[in-house]
Design a protein around this nucleic acid. Structure first.
Lengths: 135, 135
DNA sequence: GCATCTTTTAGAACGGTTCTAATCTGCTTG
DNA sequence: CAAGCAGATTAGAACCGTTCTAAAAGATGC
């Protein structure tokens, strides 16, 4: 067996989630290679291709749990479909309008100045920058 | 009758849309007072309250047509629901997370520096900045 | 007013997501 | 290592926002 660098069962347990077969398989597909953007449907197809039986409901459950646990970030760019991003660090997005492609770009070089202070009684949660481009 | 500053039938015709009773009523609610954020449901409720019979399908049709005509801007901030903004000028948004409130803020003071260039073969369409805040 | 083309409408259909209730599985305890 | 239990998975139904359909109503041009 090749050296499985991050131990997915352990990572899941650390996030307060039981390392079930399905969750481990989903985590493997999501986190084994570099940063990814997936939808529930695309992830479902990918995991089923690994011959691990998973229902779509489980994929939705896991995506929501992973997001709540801080393992994923949900990106809202298009009406009626949610993307999940395995990159949970500070960064922003390119969104290619007609075909729904999503690309990260690092926030290191990006500076946003002059943002107003949040309305009374609210605290800042996150600043999303979406650069929409067309072909 | 008070001086109806902008003539809605004329404005609709200028946008290439027939000034039907329903579209005029919708335009009135949308554009008569200052800038607004609406969802299809909220606009439907508002217009019906003026005793003008309108179906929800017509509200959806009109919102999409107004957006395509540049009279409205669609804002995607939350999964599964579209907001429409009567402010089509340059500005950004506060989004109050739990309750779905949306507020404009002007882009005048905001400067974004260091954005990377769009991927090969694409041209910039728009930059959305969404400041998410929580209570 | 008449013909034509557009718009509206109610209701069905749709697509993505969540819920339900039954079954199963991972974990703990004895 | 068997039993018990809480939590997870599942198929399918339900749900919700949005779009489609086919028919009726309305706007526009002549």
């Amino acid at each position: 067996m090749p050296g499985n660098s991050p131990d997915f069962p352990t990572r899941l347990r650390a996030a307060g989630l039981r390392p079930t077969k399905q969750r481990v398989a989903l985590a493997r597909v999501l986190f084994e290679a570099g940063h990814r953007h997936v939808t529930a449907e695309s992830l479902h197809a990918e995991v089923k291709a690994t011959r691990m039986p998973v229902s779509l409901a489980t994929v939705y459950n896991a995506l929501n749990q992973f997001r709540d646990a801080g393992l994923l970030r949900e990106v809202v760019v298009a009406p009626g479909r949610s993307y999940f991003d395995t990159n949970t660090g500070h960064h922003h997005h390119f969104f290619v309008e007609p075909d729904g492609e999503l690309h990260d770009f690092p926030s290191e070089k990006v500076t946003i100045a002059g943002l107003p202070t949040p309305p009374k009684g609210t605290r800042l949660s996150r600043v999303d920058v979406i650069v929409r481009v067309r072909r």
